[in-house]
Design a protein around this nucleic acid. Structure first.
Lengths: 202, 202, 202, 202
DNA sequence: GATGAATGAGACTTCATTCAT
DNA sequence: AATGAATGAAGTCTCATTCAT
């Protein structure tokens, strides 16, 4: 059962120093993009020398992977718990969308790395991440199927609706916060309403 | 009337060579991100020497700006024409969303640069682009207001719906094409349905 | 009292490697001029890679500044000590001119950088250097004023004589060594005689 | 009799355009040094394209040579005429030093190139220039010898005095104008006095 | 004579990474 | 674990010069 998805220590780095490096790297990657970020700047944020990253992460890419892995696990965990906390399709969709949107708003730096910096991963690392992404998608898919089966939802195209709902959440990390929306809770409320309409509920 | 939004030659570069450089740069920026892309690679794609970019664009950033300007103008122009081609709110929304989604699918390389690489722009260039982005948003906003006023739409929150509709389009450039969707027309059809539901039409 | 003039470590670089880089840069700057010299060549003289200069000096200009600062301090220190070693105006002028001329002859590479490459300095760095240059000039001025007051000298125009005396020394760094003069001591002796005549002594 | 020293058109360039290019280049070379100056900047000063220099001067170095040649000839001509205009050693020295100093003050841009940028010349070009420099030195030497022979001067070391007198003039081009001296005539007067003292006249 | 795109070389500088300390 | 000098590669950009127009 020690698969990458389940062992939380797998390749992420457990020491306190590693966590600080991850946090600093997340901010820099989110602000400039992985390609434009330098390991020197990450080290400098922590008042460390340029070489100090390397005892913790062998390469810049492995640091990105650790962040991506941790982030993707957090999203999946968050929406899985949310969906499991409710019983009706409507309540499940409400909980899952709300959690998804809030997570992208609250953790918009991590979220940006999670959603937009994956192209720099090695093939193998990308595959590991892609697996988690598919699992995340499946959570929404199943709720829609459940709702359509129960007659509560009237989705026109299940795949399209899933795609659209996840797009709303993902895109939050691109722009959040804005002048119009800087409260994650309010934003989540609005996007839940739109998601319910997309699936034909009410 | 020679504002950046209206004079099509403004800072974009009109020569054939400049256009080829823009096209090559678009592909590289889209594939790797601006920060990880090199002017050398752009030149190499056209079998040019590394310095050959510079008679046409003084800096890498100005090349990004030219692409972003051209792209943003194209989007705005496309959806403006689409909206103007119809009269009823529903037809206008259908036309505009369809055009928006299709543009992001067809031109997903340009679109990716347009939507995700703006942080590298200089402050002044960013302002010019931001103006066009606001104009683009306003096209959707006005259609929703028109529909709400006419009673055809029953939008719960106009700003949220505009945001959501544009998010759908923008996010297309992140993932398109996928296994599930590689036909821009089909995708546009599905997303139009979802947009209409979001505004409470049918 | 930690002014740039007095703290010898200020911005010069204290490590052995930095000193070697300064020495190599001095030779190259003196031979080709700052503008025509390359950091690559400086590194190559020490069998280092091109980037190896940069842990020690952040820019080529800061390397020039370090050399200029060290050199200007050395001149000022040298003539100040020389002047202080004597009591009569004639002996002071003799000692100061001799020291000044010998310094420019012995250290003609540093001297050339010190005297001819300052235009490449940043404004702030230039100001720091200009302060030291004024202090150097003042040493000669004061000796002349002292001699005029004591009746030993009969200078016609104090400012002009100071200018001329420093010009003799500075210009040494342009041509030294030549066929006619390659012995710093002999040259200094001759220039001292001329300086004494310029101030009307004997 | 068509030696480089005497044929004024030799390698200098006679057209009006060539003269404008020489003038622009002189300013740029004087301001930044030959090594840091670019042919592009020279062309830009005249609102010409980068390639426009090349119909007139085949290389940047040949442009430097033309300026150096013209300048060196002008100095030699100026002091030769000055010396020839007087009969007594004292009057000859006065006239020659005055002319030399004034020339370096009035033409300080050309003078700077003439005095400090010769290292960039090709060997052959340098030899041509060095010949003129020696001729210039000889003008002063002969005046001193004449004065010593006539008993009007009491030079201690003829070579040293010549060197010192030319140093004064050359160094003017380094600093002129300054706050203290911006009037060539006044400066010349002062330096003539000092030169006369150096040779023991009065 | 002049333009301006292009080249080939090379400029300064940064970067991910290593390694002795 | 951390430092900081160093490397080898590469990055953006400039430059002298050429050449078709």
């Amino acid at each position: 059962m020690d698969t990458p998805l389940e062992d939380p220590a797998y390749e992420v780095g457990t020491s306190k120093a590693a966590a600080r490096i991850r946090a600093a790297a997340t901010e820099v990657f989110a602000a400039k993009g992985y390609g434009a970020a330098s390991t020197r700047e990450i080290a400098a944020r922590l008042d460390l020398s340029p070489g100090a990253v390397y005892p913790h992460y062998k390469t810049k890419e492995s640091l990105l992977f650790a962040i991506a892995l941790e982030g993707h696990r957090a999203v999946l965990d968050t929406i899985t718990r949310a969906a499991d906390s409710a019983t009706s399709p409507r309540d499940q969709l409400t909980a899952a969308v709300s959690a998804y949107v809030k997570w992208h708003a609250h953790h918009h730096a991590i979220a940006r790395v999670v959603q937009y910096e994956l192209r720099a991963l090695s093939d193998e690392h990308f595959k590991t991440i892609a697996e988690i992404r598919r699992a995340t998608s499946r959570v929404f898919e199943r709720i829609l199927e459940f709702g359509d089966a129960s007659g509560e939802f009237h989705t026109l195209d299940s795949a399209a609706a899933t795609l659209a709902i996840t797009s709303l959440g993902i895109d939050v990390s691109r722009w959040f916060p804005s002048n119009a929306y800087s409260d994650p809770d309010l934003l989540a409320e609005r996007f839940v309403e739109l998601a319910l309409r997309m699936v034909g509920n009410i």
